[in-house]
Design a protein around this nucleic acid. Structure first.
Lengths: 164, 164
DNA sequence: CGGATTTAGTTTAGGCGTAAATTATCGAAG
DNA sequence: CTTCGATAATTTACGCCTAAACTAAATCCG
């Protein structure tokens, strides 16, 4: 309880630097994610996936198809169906059949959804800014660039016939 | 399907840099985590939490209590109970009552567990090294340092009476 | 000693994640 | 126009995660 022991303790002294970086990346993400989730729950009685879903719609006032949402949220389709059902019940979104394709539906933010999201987004930004305040602007920029490089590589490896 | 659209698309052009960094951090972590999970499943028919559990034990040949494992894995106690049950059934770990405290149990790697883990760890390291190959050694070091700073701050904020 | 509190671990209910099977529709090719 | 493969979405089964309620043992303290 006293020492901050965590997943990084998986390390052995001679582990490769890449493994160390990875575990630290994982720790940081978990820490931030857990805190954001707790606040969304306490302050808004919602969850991260629901917040994420709404924020995707906010970005696209013309609406999105389920498939587009699942790609943007980086989750499989089943989740999107379930979350959409909840948000629909809560009246935060609307759903309509896509013109010209009866298989697809177009999901949009409702007026209530837009209002609810605006408030959450404001608070969310404050939380994130506070959590990243440890880093100076230049450091955040640096981190942003390093992660961009990593991400580009990861996405490239994905496309490349999934080299083993 | 063509453009790599993902959670970062949650962004609005004028979002704060911190939010951008956070979403990119999340993307990267998810990408790596998903790939590692897929390989653990395909090659070893296991999962990330089980792998993590074993690796904690590897680090501590004298054994760990359930509570210690849950702290190190950064998950709540209930999970540890369940995963320990599985690993016990699979014969990869052993459990004994803690000397001097009949509430606690000491979990250790079995010989089979040690063998199984060694093989997985070897492969795991290869995967991670390949995934982080986009970054030069100096860049990995830089990333490691930036994340250290962030992590320190996050853990400090946690201890500090959880400021809202 | 004996009751109150704390701690170790388990259990339960419920959310989110996946993969795989299923249904409905689309679009193309015979 | 009909059949066949691809695509949109849903459903199912199952794993991990949390929070909260619970049991049992340890510890604190009057």
């Amino acid at each position: 309880m006293l020492d901050p022991v965590d997943v990084e303790s998986r390390l052995t002294h001679d582990d490769h630097l890449s493994v160390r970086v990875w575990l630290r990346l994982l720790s940081c993400t978990n820490l931030v994610e857990t805190r954001v989730a707790a606040r969304l729950r306490d302050d808004f009685e919602t969850t991260l996936p629901r917040f994420d879903f709404l924020s995707q719609l906010e970005r696209h006032p013309a609406g999105l198809r389920m498939t587009e949402i699942s790609k943007r949220m980086m989750v499989t389709g089943g989740n999107v169906t379930r979350i959409a059902d909840q948000l629909l019940t809560e009246g935060l979104i609307t759903r309509s059949v896509a013109p010209g394709d009866r298989r697809a539906s177009i999901v949009k933010l409702s007026a209530a959804g837009r209002r609810a999201f605006a408030e959450m987004a404001r608070r969310h930004e404050d939380w994130i800014v506070a959590m990243f305040a440890a880093l100076a602007e230049a450091e955040r920029t640096q981190l942003y660039a390093l992660l961009a490089k990593l991400k580009r590589h990861l996405n490239a490896a994905e496309s490349d016939g999934k080299n083993r």
